[in-house]
């Protein structure tokens, strides 16, 4: 034994560089201490990844090129987070999504195409008003923008949002990482209420379905105009969710309740596609 510790004496050039031992017992102990992370140790991984997106992204969106990279990586990160951590959301929100037949929260990520489709579908289903067709357009555009990822990430985003302090929350919602959440809630102001619903109703699919279904009236600036093209200032950017997070977007009037937005009495309270299967 003594020779081992002579070898490990300071300044001895033959010493294994990073403090390793040549005692089998100690080696075994060090191996145990170095073991790869257990699921228990990595239990907060998804939470931490959300923190990474929330904290890191605002500082990286300084140029348009960086912003695009960031948006892409955000989406990948969210999808990865969803793949590993979104089981609960799959079981709850996913069911609501399937039952109601639309993914309302994905529709702000493609505002332009969404607006364009409003009119087209409205002329078939509901000539008098475009509003009820919003869910249909959501479902259509949602498919192209990965509705599953957004759906399942909402719960995590709400958790991440709720974890921040008051000062951080306002800034956080301007970050691309929260674009999907802001879009789902229908505006920055509506996020707290929306998250309250998402986080409390995930066990109740019908309730979640009602709540999310009611959060998405049609775009107020696009009444029934069947041939109206996409709004020029809001081109379809399914691949760039960060566009939807632009702080200049007007807040949507809807709240995650069944009540129609009070400032838009013309809105029907019932979507074209009933949320009850």
């Amino acid at each position: 034994m003594s020779t081992i510790w002579k070898l490990l004496r300071p300044g001895h050039r033959g010493t294994p560089r990073r403090g390793s031992s040549t005692s089998p017992r100690v080696d075994r102990l060090l191996d145990a201490a170095r073991a790869t992370g257990t699921p228990r140790e990595l239990a907060r991984e998804d939470e931490t990844v959300m923190l990474f997106h929330r904290a890191h992204l605002p500082q990286t969106t300084t140029s348009s090129g960086e912003q695009m990279d960031t948006a892409r990586s955000t989406r990948r990160g969210l999808q990865a987070a969803v793949a590993t951590g979104g089981v609960v959301a799959v079981m709850s929100s996913g069911i609501a999504f399937a039952a109601s037949g639309h993914a309302p929260w994905s529709h702000d990520s493609t505002p332009g195409s969404s607006a364009g489709r409003h009119g087209t579908v409205a002329s078939d289903d509901s000539p008098s008003s475009a509003e009820p067709t919003a869910p249909t357009s959501d479902a259509t555009t949602g498919i192209t923008t990965g509705p599953a990822a957004r759906t399942h990430g909402l719960r995590g985003l709400c958790h991440a949002y709720a974890a921040g302090n008051k000062a951080e929350k306002g800034k956080a919602l301007a970050s691309p990482a929260f674009a999907g959440l802001v879009a789902a809630a229908g505006g920055t102001d509506a996020v707290p209420g929306f998250c309250a619903v998402v986080l409390t109703t995930t066990d109740d699919s019908s309730q979640a379905s009602d709540a999310t279904g009611a959060t998405h009236p049609a775009h107020p600036s696009h009444p029934a105009h069947p041939t109206q093209p996409a709004h020029p200032t809001q081109p379809a950017h399914p691949a760039h969710p960060s566009q939807a997070a632009s702080p200049t977007r007007p807040a949507r009037p809807a709240h995650p309740t069944q009540d129609a937005a009070p400032t838009h009495p013309a809105h029907p309270t019932r979507p074209a596609h009933p949320t009850h299967p």
């Binding site: 201490a33 073991a35 257990t38 990595l42 991984e45 931490t48 990844v49 890191h56 990586s73 987070a81």
Partner: peptide
């Protein structure tokens, strides 16, 4: 990760976190 890649952050976290927490 420093460029904002969430997947890369995940890799770094999984590698660094266990022994850091210990």
């Amino acid at each position: 990760m420093c460029a904002g890649d969430g997947d890369a952050f995940r890799v770094v976290y999984r590698t660094v976190h266990p022994t850091l927490q210990r």
